[in-house]
Each structure stands twice: as structure tokens, then as C-alpha cells.
């Protein structure tokens, strides 16, 4: 890419957005139920599990990249899926990065809800899924904050996107991999411009999340 104001810049934004959006949807769909489950009742090793998720929030993205490469390479166990160097591969990497963050922060949010609420619902015989939904609604600020934080993490990561996507033009080139590439070519102005654009997009999305938090009160 040679120009900042071009259709290609828009396309790169779109690739970044769809990759991170899919990852956040998947990680939330998996992570919030896990958070509900591990905050809901006491069981042996609960502390250890929560500590494990807290630790995994520090998972290095380059490590996730090389780990998934070693599984998705054509000569590796999952090679026949033909996922390497596609955007779903990048999404998968980002899902792994987002999942522990969503679990860990959602557990913290759910633990802050009133214990009596749970007890009352159990006494009233409220179904498990319905109860989960009510609890998430009760803790929505914290849970949405978890989703926002996870989005921030995956939208701005470059290590696994570069390794799993390959920075292929018109296909897997994201905002962060473009910044890395343009900077390595010495196009610092373009790299800076794209960096500010990325911040702008993140701001727009956070405004959206904020309105969602407000809307549900």
C-alpha cells in the first residue's frame, strides 16, 4: 500500500475489525458461561482455576502464534483444515488471547453481585440459564468492561496476526501488521498515521460499548 487515503486502508480496517469481532464474539460466548460457572459455586480447585485464568491473561501473542502455527501448518495435525494464512486463523489466535481475559475479569465482576440474589433465585427455582442471564445483567458493567478490555487486547496485537495471517495483501493484512510492515520499510509517517487511525477506530468502538452500558440501565 502506498497511500493513507485509499480503498486499501479501508479494507485493512475491515479485516482488522472482522477478525477481532469474530474473536470477541467467540471468546465471550465461551468465556462468560465459564465465568458464571466458576463464580457460582464452590468446588475443589476453584482458586487454582481462577489463578490459572488470571495467569493466562499474560499469554504472549507471539507464543500463541507459534503454538497455533505448529498445529495449523499443512504438515501438522490440523493442517487439513487449510486454516493457516486466513483470517479465521488470526481470529482463532485472538480468541485464545481474549478468552482468559474475559473469564478472569467477568469472574471478578460476578463475584461482586449480591450473594442474596443467587440464593433467592435458587429458592424460587429459577432455571440455570435464566439465572445466568439475570446475573450477567446485574454485573453488566463489569462484564462489558471485560469484553472491552479483551477487544482492546486483540485489536491491537500484532504477534499472532503476523504469524497466522502472514500479512497477505488484500486478505490478511491488518492495521497492526501494516504498521509493522510500513515501519520496517522506513515509512514512519504512514505507520504513525495508521496508528492514530487504529486509535480512532478503537475510540469509536468504545463509545459504542459505553452507550450499550448506558442503554441497559
Amino acid at each position: 500500500m502506498n497511500a493513507f487515503f485509499s480503498a486499501e486502508t479501508l479494507q485493512i480496517c475491515f479485516v482488522s475489525l472482522k477478525t477481532s469481532a469474530a474473536a470477541i464474539v467467540a471468546a465471550s460466548a465461551l468465556g462468560i458461561p465459564v465465568a458464571l460457572w466458576s463464580s457460582g459455586h464452590d468446588f475443589a480447585g476453584r482458586g487454582a482455576l481462577v489463578t490459572a485464568f488470571n495467569t493466562l491473561t499474560a499469554l504472549p501473542s507471539v507464543f500463541v502464534g507459534v503454538l497455533l502455527y505448529s498445529l495449523l501448518s499443512r504438515s501438522a495435525p490440523l493442517g487439513s483444515l487449510e486454516l493457516l494464512y486466513t483470517w479465521p486463523a488470526m481470529s482463532l489466535g485472538q480468541t485464545i488471547l481474549a478468552f482468559p481475559l474475559i473469564v478472569s475479569l467477568s469472574v471478578a465482576a460476578l463475584n461482586r453481585t449480591d450473594v442474596r440474589l443467587r440464593k433467592e433465585m435458587i429458592a424460587l427455582g429459577v432455571g440455570r440459564w435464566h439465572m445466568g442471564w439475570i446475573l450477567v445483567k446485574e454485573a453488566r458493567f463489569g462484564v462489558l468492561a471485560a469484553v472491552v478490555a479483551a477487544f482492546g487486547r486483540v485489536f491491537t496485537e500484532v504477534g499472532s496476526a503476523l504469524m497466522l495471517g502472514g500479512n497477505i495483501r488484500h486478505a490478511t493484512r491488518t492495521m497492526t501488521t501494516t504498521i509493522a510492515m510500513e515501519t520496517s520499510k522506513g515509512n514512519f509517517e504512514l505507520g504513525l498515521g495508521l496508528g492514530f487511525l487504529l486509535l480512532g477506530v478503537a475510540l469509536a468502538i468504545n463509545i459504542g460499548f459505553h452507550r450499550l452500558q448506558e442503554a441497559k440501565t
Binding site: K18, A21, A22, V25, E82, T86, W87, P88
Partner: peptide, 14 residues
């Protein structure tokens, strides 16, 4: 709508 777009994209990728 966003979900449908993502699913459509998945099919395009494969």
C-alpha cells in the same frame, strides 16, 4: 446483521 456478515465471510474464506 454483524453475525450474518461474519458467517458469510467465513464461507468466502473457505
Amino acid at each position: 446483521v454483524a453475525g450474518l456478515v461474519l458467517v458469510a465471510q467465513l464461507f468466502c474464506a473457505s
